[in-house]
Design a protein around this nucleic acid. Structure first.
Lengths: 116, 116
DNA sequence: CAGTACGCTACATTATCTGTAGCAAACCGC
DNA sequence: GCGGTTTGCTACAGATAATGTAGCGTACTG
């Protein structure tokens, strides 16, 4: 594996991130989540672990290329892991993160009702 | 303004959305936020309204093209509005949404400490 | 060993973002 | 009025990221 020079600027080192150089954790997250499928992946893993292929199914057949890239990023960030039984799943940290996202789900429910 | 045919597939009608056809509100949000700068814009408007140019400054000089597109989407979604004094700001709904994002900020703070 | 599922990659096509320039309208101060 | 400034916003070429399809190598399973 020659590991081709990353064509994409991504998380660099410890906290530096595309778009914002501050490295403030919230910025890192906002940037990481501003990429396609990132949030969705976390969301789909909320209940059970899945194989990469099942995850792809859950994510509306998103292309394996991006899914894999997102999974790599999420793994590097420590939110997702690939474990023996069941495949991809949330780490303890990932689970904390998910809990921080639950209010968003509640908001979505309310919001969905309001807009007829 | 001839309104050129949208080259990009975006939110279609009421709840249908790129990627997921379910129209479930949470999916709409996850998709909307999976676009560059969307979350960041909401975040930067958390305290004060800003002119579009100030917002651009806050968003690390992101290109006005995308910013404008995101702003349009966020306005259509009813989270952001362009008001007389101060420029762009959150709507009441947008403010609710922001509150639903605060746990994420708290998580980010914790997370930032842990990863040395 | 054939059949299947796994994680993952290749790659051409398409979509999206960036960066710079600039427009028209509204607001100055004079 | 008439320059200067700022506003929201658009154009457009070039760069980057995502899609969709195909397929590799490695496990398993029978």
């Amino acid at each position: 594996m020659p590991k081709p020079p990353l064509p994409v600027q991504k998380i660099i080192g410890k906290g530096r991130v595309r778009g914002s150089r501050t490295g403030r954790p919230i910025m890192v997250l906002l940037d990481l989540f501003g990429r396609r499928w990132a949030l969705r992946i976390l969301w789909e893993l909320r209940e059970t672990s899945m194989t990469s292929r099942a995850l792809r199914g859950a994510c509306d057949e998103a292309s394996p290329t991006v899914l894999n890239e997102r999974l790599k990023e999420l793994r590097e960030a420590g939110f997702v892991e690939l474990a023996e039984p069941g495949g991809y799943g949330l780490t303890p940290t990932g689970r904390e993160l998910l809990e921080a996202l639950l209010p968003l789900n509640r908001f979505a429910a309310r919001w969905g009702k309001e807009r007829s």
